[in-house]
Design a protein around this nucleic acid. Structure first.
Lengths: 273, 273
DNA sequence: CGAGGAGTTGAGGCTAGTCAAGGCCCGTGG
DNA sequence: CCACGGGCCTTGACTAGCCTCAACTCCTCG
């Protein structure tokens, strides 16, 4: 179906770069990708028709695997992935969750082999941009710009792990996680108050670096104090402001003479009246 | 807030891209940067002479500040920076330590304002690549390539925070941190066994997400068991292999015959696979 | 030589890990 | 259709280890 044609000549020469020449399962175009990334493509530009491969990934299937040779970077079109790294002792550390319009595999650029594994949490599809084309993309400003922004955003997202970890208490970590999810949902135009978790407790536990039982208890505690309600993976944030207050007590409060008691209460959970 | 602003406008000559047009304190060239990044510049190319600004940063001074408008990305030429993020409750979370040949400020690309603050831990200097030039760089392959790789490496580095956090025990976290430093030192051609910490205990504590006293005790414990020796910020890894074992064989008690290392429950977190 | 920051050490309370058992959900198969 | 099975999730009891508070030492610098 694809141009099973020659791979001659540097792409620079040819104005027609076909990013889908290794098409896997479907075809998309640059304008599809740009739309996904919130960049309305300048219509009329010939490059908007630039084909870009789309790959579908089944639930629980890996998109790329740690240690294998990197061949592409990916933009999530639909579905959610978990990014994990298998440590030397065999423990699978969850590094993050990646959804639509986010980039995957950019971390493999410098080493040429994937330092992480990405696994689909549900049926998913991604745009595939082969690495060997990256160099020839100088002309295609729109795509380069999108790549830069996505990589930059991925970097900023990664920083959130540390921000989450800086909280000692499990309920605080969980509330930060839920708020992070809430923001991402909102960014995708979905409800920030009510959503379904795509990952299981084990993944959340790994991501927050606490025991799975602790996650369970933390969910219970947040519900107990009226901040959320939940049923399995279905979560509803009842008191957004309260959750936010709880989420940002990192360490023991500095010194707030009379407020100390109040802060300590919310720190210990029961929530302010 | 030392905005060493020498905002004297240069004649926007147009064709001649002068990345140092906002030169702050010194001048470098593209070939200098490429050499720093381990890419021998193809001599003879005219672009090698492309001027790139060099900015010096005094100890404890910020290179860029969270929330301010992003204007450039930086390549560390000398010195070490700590990257921090001030959370809503005022807690300064250390996200990482960045040294020579690593990139800073790339995370600001997508938002156009810095999500993090970078502070020099000692006298430092950086190459400055203004953002508004990034788009016009399509021609300069070498620079674009270096930027991509550095950003990718930064992303991979960030993942290590999570890997470190996945350890519950403080000694395990500290040993992973020391091994990380060791690797970086080796990558820069310096001794991986003996080095001087550029950051204080407080920064380490924040980075590892444990209390400062715990850091102190963990140093003591590692020395006690003969894995390292230290005096203030001077660290020597005595038993590299043992340190590595402690850092990663963390699931089982690991019977170190008669060593004082109480690796009783150095688990690497639940998961109970 | 003193002041102050950085680092260490000690005591105690409390969170979260571990182990263990039970409940819930949803698949498969009779 | 229901019964069974095996995940996933929850809950309880116990204990290890970390955070907190507080005092102290060491080092540096004025």
């Amino acid at each position: 179906m694809t141009h099973a044609t020659t791979t001659e000549q540097a792409p620079l020469a040819a104005k027609v770069i076909d990013l889908s020449r290794n098409t896997l399962e479907a075809r998309g175009s640059l304008s599809d990708l740009l739309r996904l990334m919130g960049r309305e493509p300048a219509s009329g530009r010939p490059e908007s028709a630039l084909p870009i491969a789309v790959r579908r990934v089944r639930r629980d299937a890996p998109l790329c695997h740690q240690g294998t040779k990197a061949e592409s970077i990916y933009f999530v079109r639909s579905g959610t992935f978990k990014v994990i790294q298998t440590l030397e002792d065999g423990y699978d550390q969850v590094l993050g969750f990646v959804g639509p319009s986010q980039v995957l595999g950019f971390d493999a650029l410098y080493a040429e082999s994937h330092p992480t594994t990405a696994i689909a949490l549900d049926e998913a599809s991604v745009f595939v941009v082969p690495l060997f084309e990256l160099n020839g993309l100088g002309e295609c400003r729109a795509l380069v710009d999108v790549i830069h922004r996505a990589a930059s955003a991925a970097l900023a997202d990664q920083a959130e792990i540390a921000a989450i970890m800086s909280a000692v208490r499990a309920e605080v970590r969980l509330s930060r996680f839920l708020l992070q999810l809430s923001r991402h949902m909102a960014a995708r135009g979905q409800s920030p108050r009510r959503f379904i978790l795509r990952m299981d407790r084990r993944d959340i536990a790994s991501y927050l670096a606490v025991a799975i039982e602790t996650i369970s208890r933390a969910f219970g505690a947040l519900a107990e104090s009226g901040l959320i309600t939940f049923r399995n993976r279905e979560v509803e944030i009842v008191d957004m402001e309260g959750l936010h207050r709880l989420a940002f007590v990192t360490r023991r409060p500095l010194e707030l003479p009379d407020q100390a008691v109040v802060v300590r209460q919310s720190y210990c959970l029961p929530a302010a009246a």
